[in-house]
Amino acid sequence: MVNIASYIEQTNLKPEATLQDISKLCSEAMTYNFAAVCVHSSYVSTAHAMLKGSDVRISCVVGFPLGAMATKIKAAEAAYAVACGADEIDMVLAIGRVKSGDWDYVIEDIQQVVAAVPGHPVKGILETGLLTEEEKKLACRAAVQAGAAYVKTSTGFGCGGAVVEDVRLMRDMVGKNARIKASGGIRDYQTACAMIAAGADRLGTSSGPAIMEGMQHDGK
């Protein structure tokens, strides 16, 4: 049986998330020994204090959820998050530039965020529900070329979430040059297992405890 807890990034990116919600998020992550929590930059310092002494990592979203912010702003937010205690950065690609075929901009956008946080993995969020198959392939290539450590399916706030076919395509495109994070709509154990089987290395989800309960039920 897969140790699914080691794949899970327990996530709360809702605009109405409160301090109590972030406290619960961190508590759940420590209880189940999840790989990470994923939060907005304003909550990184809070999560860092709550997770002190644990092995749970902190992922912070940047340019979220639209990806349309200026590159310098994304880089500054990434640097701020790391200064506050973030271990990893999940940045939304410049989706409109992807749709425009402006690959020089897309690559530079990612490169500047990567350069702003040396030693900290950057995940490039493709927002696959808005892209054609060819755009997904080219976005994967751009992310790897720019130095992203991961490519990630979606924000969970756009059109569609993670689907197995996209995870397979992304794995085929990046090979061993990057890891894959599936995110958006992963709410049960069966779906989580399907994403891992397709090639996902991390799972972004707000349903970590439910997934763990499903694993325990299936293991009986």
Rank of each mutant, 00 (worst) to 15 (best):
T128E: 04
V106W: 04
I196H: 10
E135P: 12
Y150S: 13
G185W: 03
L25A: 10
P65W: 02
W103Q: 08
A86R: 12
G101K: 03
G175N: 09
G184P: 11
A70M: 14
M195R: 05
Q190E: 15
D109F: 12
E213S: 10
V92Y: 08
R141A: 06
E77K: 06
G53H: 11
G124K: 02
V61H: 10
A162E: 08
G129C: 06
A149Q: 11
Q190F: 04
A78R: 03
S42Q: 09
S42P: 00
K181C: 14
V114Y: 05
E213D: 10
R171S: 11
L19K: 13
L25R: 12
Y105E: 12
D104C: 01
L51D: 09
E165Q: 15
D166K: 09
C84V: 00
Y189I: 01
K176T: 14
D109R: 12
Q20M: 03
L51W: 01
L126M: 14
I4G: 12
V114C: 13
R57N: 10
M69Y: 01
A200I: 12
S207V: 00
S207C: 14
R202K: 13
V114S: 07
G147A: 09
G129N: 06
G53T: 05
S23A: 15
I196R: 05
M69Q: 12
L130W: 09
S207K: 10
V167A: 11
S54K: 04
D90S: 14
N33M: 02
E165Y: 01
V39R: 14
N177M: 09
M30Q: 15
M215E: 12
G53P: 07
A148T: 00
V114I: 03
G175K: 03
R179W: 05
A75N: 04
S100V: 00
E127T: 09
V163W: 01
A146M: 07
V163T: 10
K137N: 05
S41Y: 06
C26H: 09
N3T: 02
